[in-house]
């Protein structure tokens, strides 16, 4: 006991303790479930063998089965569309807002903080709000589009297979925009002001300054935010549960929702684990990009 106290006092071993605790936490709470999930994807799992580890190994059978199912490729395609459209929408809207608030008009920082409200809200609440907005009969989005003359008849966003995925994408863009905006605002304010002044004296107009100074100086921020966006988008579950439940007929189903559906509604745990492992591969790639881009900071 005395040794522990003295080691705290003189700092010896304290640094190791600081690392051991989070590492142990990470291993128990994230590492083990991850390994367990990967192992399960190579096993035959049913309701009866769920309580034991001693389950028959079946090799790649689960993977073969997964990719032979007719809904797999459409769902993977949906996931790709969801990820790309969501990130693009969030990033463009977020960057536009960040640039807007960057002009620093009176009340800008206050208003920018207010935008974060959308990001703090639980996904299920956001989903409920968007259910009203997207409603086919009385939704305000249909009303707006009709009033603007863009559409003639009502779009049934949530039940029309052509629009159901986009209904979730629209809600997800709204949800993630403010997070993008905040991170991009931080990146913008980290660029030294005198670079813009130098460029201005060097003859660059606002557009040229954006292309030659702002964007390249934001490279690491942009890399980080896009990989974070990929991770968050692949995690997005609540909105699917609240808005379309993956339907109709899997037209808005994505891998993360499908994994849950397979495991906990159809009790096909092995298939659920298998699709999760496929997702892990993608998230790992995003993580590598994220780590590399934050390491590659460009600062004078």
């Amino acid at each position: 006991m005395k040794r522990i106290f003295s080691s705290l006092a003189d700092g010896k071993g304290f640094d190791i303790a600081l690392i051991v605790f989070p590492l142990a936490f990470l291993f128990v709470m994230a590492g083990l479930p991850l390994i367990y999930n990967v192992v399960m994807s190579f096993q035959e799992v049913d309701m009866f063998s769920l309580g034991t580890f001693a389950r028959p190994f079946v090799g790649f059978k689960n993977y073969v089965t997964l990719f032979s199912q007719p809904e797999t490729w459409p769902i993977l395609k949906n996931t790709a569309i969801f990820v790309v459209a969501s990130i693009a929408g969030q990033f463009i809207a977020g960057f536009a807002l960040a640039l807007f608030f960057w002009t620093n008009f009176p009340g800008a920082s206050w208003l920018r903080g207010l935008f974060l409200v959308s990001w703090v809200m639980p996904g299920l609440v956001v989903g409920a709000i968007w259910n009203w907005i997207l409603s086919g009969d009385f939704g305000v989005l249909n009303y707006l589009l009709t009033a603007l003359g863009i559409i003639d008849g009502n779009i049934f966003w949530r039940s029309d297979p052509n629009f159901s995925l986009w209904a979730v994408i629209i809600a997800n863009i709204w949800l993630g925009t403010s997070f993008n905006m905040i991170l991009l605002s931080v990146g913008l304010s980290a660029i030294p002001k005198d670079l813009f002044e130098a460029a201005e004296l060097d003859g660059a107009n606002a557009f040229q300054r954006f292309w030659t100074i702002t964007l390249p100086m934001m490279r690491s921020t942009i890399g980080a935010i896009i990989s974070l966006g990929l991770i968050f988008t692949l995690q997005q579950f609540d909105l699917f549960a609240a808005i379309t439940s993956g339907g109709p007929n899997n037209s808005s189903n994505v891998t993360q929702y499908w994994a849950w559906d397979l495991s906990f509604r159809q009790y096909d745990f092995a298939q659920g684990a298998t699709i999760s492992v496929v997702m892990i591969v993608f998230v790992m790639m995003a993580s590598i990009v994220y780590v590399r881009s934050t390491r590659h900071e460009v600062r004078g």
């Binding site: 002044e197 130098a198 003859g203 004078g300």
Partner: peptide
Amino acid sequence: VPPRKRDLAMVFQSYALYPH
């Protein structure tokens, strides 16, 4: 007249070199 049309060159205290 905006700075970019004044045809003056400035050397800043921080140098303001483009780091990228």
